[in-house]
Amino acid sequence: MDLFVQGVSHHYGDLQALDAIDLQVKGGQILALIGPSGCGKSTLLGIMGGMLQPTEGDVVAAGVPPADSLNPFTYIFQDFALLPWRSVAGNVALALEHHRLDRAERTARIEAALVLTGLRDFAAALPRQLSGGMRQRVGIARAVAVRPAILFLDEPLSALDAQTRELLLEDLLAIWQREATTAVYVTHNLDEAVRVADRIAVLSRRPGRIKQVMPVEIPRSERGDARHAADLAALHAQLWDLIRGEAAVADRELADG
């Protein structure tokens, strides 16, 4: 499925968060959205997945979602958004319970998602018993279980410590290696963007505008190779140049100013 963002602007009261955004998500590709804090990345992600009504413009999907997709537009949240009173399996089941599925298929989907995310042995555990990384794995399992057509990831790793982030990023990359995915990945971490994305859209500071969309030509699976290290570092530096000035301003801004 492709997704087209057409002329989207968004205001919070007097504050303009997004200004005339045009963007395309190509089927089977991962688009990273980066930009300084307060640039409206998360707002744009909410609008793209139908969780926020834009003030102007619209978002159009092209193509038919796969037959087994229960929830074509699915999110993975920064704060995991797990129900603390449900077990790991119960949290995954939440996404399936309101669909007409026979018991066997439901169990199979849950089982498959837990296996994929390495949570099989923790099916009965409660969220409070899990580490942050394990909790986000539950969030991923829940998203995988509904076979999304487009996955929206809202800074999925930023609530985790550096080591856990690295582990989980490797897991995500492994999953995407196995099954081709269409995804929009919001992050403020340039490293993540460079390692994950097929294209990187850089947003400017408030109001958010598309500054540049940069393709990452190196295949995802080869980005760990030493021969590409210099190219990736150059890309990283280029991205940093694009947002550095604005990030510094954003850093010095009062929260409600």
Binding site: G49, N71, T74, Y75, F77, A81, H98, V146
Partner: peptide, 16 residues
């Protein structure tokens, strides 16, 4: 609110 948004993002019906 994040839990309610999550439920909406999975298309849970309002009674659910």
């Amino acid at each position: 609110r994040s839990l309610i948004r999550m439920a909406q993002s999975f298309n849970l019906p309002n009674p659910a």
